[in-house]
Structure formats: C-alpha cells, structure tokens
Design a binder for these strands. Structure first.
Length: 154
DNA sequence: CGTTTGACTACGC
DNA sequence: CGCGTAGCCAAAC
C-alpha cells in the first residue's frame, strides 16, 4: 500500500476553519494555529513543529487567490505581533486597516501587543470536536481579573 | 520540469 | 533587542 502523501488542500481547509474561530479584535499567530493541528499526513512531528507555521502562511496566501470573505485572514500575524506581508504591499495596508477598524492597536514599531490582543484559542469543546489541540495562550497569565478592554478613543 | 520564492521561526551575534 | 541566517515544503514561475 502506498503511503498517502500530504494533503495540502485538506490542511488548508483545517487552517481556514480555525481562522474562522478567531474573534474580532483578537489575533492569532501562524505558529499558534499550526500547533493546533495534529501532525498528520505522515509528516514527522519534529518537521511539522518547525515548519508548520510556514504552511499556515501558505494557507493564508491561498485565501487571497480564492477570495473567501468568510475567512478573517487579517487576524493572523507573525510571532512578533507584526504583519508578515511586504510592508509596501497593498495587502499589508488592508490588513492593518482592518485590524485597526477592530480597535486593535499598533505600537511605534507597527507591532501588536500579543499579550493584549492575542487569542487564547477557541472553545475547548470546539477544539475537541474537531480533533485538534488547544493552542498555547498568547497572553501571559492575566494578573487577576480580565482587565476590561480599553478602547483607546484616540 | 527544474528553479526560485516565501503571509515563519528559533537562534546566534 | 534588532538583524541575519538556516532549515524545509509547496506553489508559483
């Protein structure tokens, strides 16, 4: 029996489904999303850990081709909280505009504070129902209570 | 069909 | 901390 080769299309679908769970005003990282998906497709776990994030990036890139408006691709950023598209690209501007529209703020280095806007993952029940893993929280353990979201009006 | 490129990251300077 | 690099796979050329 021939070993099944990776299924990029299926992988992309899974990625997109996860991205659809990201709430407004929050962001997830490529690596975080990759970590939620089991290293299927016969790919070595070690390899997946190292390069899964890149495939997630590929999945996001694919969105631009299919133009699926149900996928909030703009809520996916890199591990530094920055936009990974080329700064001069139109996509980067659009992504930043959409995030700002959701009240996500950028610092002077054009980076998002993941501790403030980072996603902590979908509902555990949803995760389990889809055979996925809970992602690592992007936020440091909140001091006490959830600090009320401060909307900077300017 | 061989090359090049990249919407990533961890790590070393 | 910022910057450069290695590592690896699919797609796009």
């Amino acid at each position: 029996m021939i070993l099944e080769l990776p299924d990029p299309a299926g992988f992309y679908e899974t990625v997109w489904e996860i991205v659809r769970q990201i709430p407004q005003s929050q962001v997830a990282t490529y690596g975080q999303i990759a970590g939620m998906i089991p290293p299927l497709h016969g790919i070595a776990a070690a390899d997946y850990d190292r390069f899964g994030a890149r495939w997630v990036g590929d999945a996001m890139n694919a969105v631009s081709r299919i133009d699926d408006e149900t996928i909030p691709w703009h809520r996916v950023v890199n591990s530094k909280g920055g936009i990974s598209l080329p700064e001069e690209s139109k996509g980067a501007a659009l992504q930043r505009a959409r995030l700002r529209h959701e009240n996500v703020t950028f610092d002077k280095k054009e980076r998002i504070d993941l501790n403030q806007f980072g996603w902590n993952g979908p509902d555990p029940l949803w995760v389990e129902a889809h055979g996925l893993f809970m992602p690592k929280s992007l936020r440091n353990a909140p001091p006490e209570a959830d600090a009320p979201q401060q909307l900077s009006l300017f």
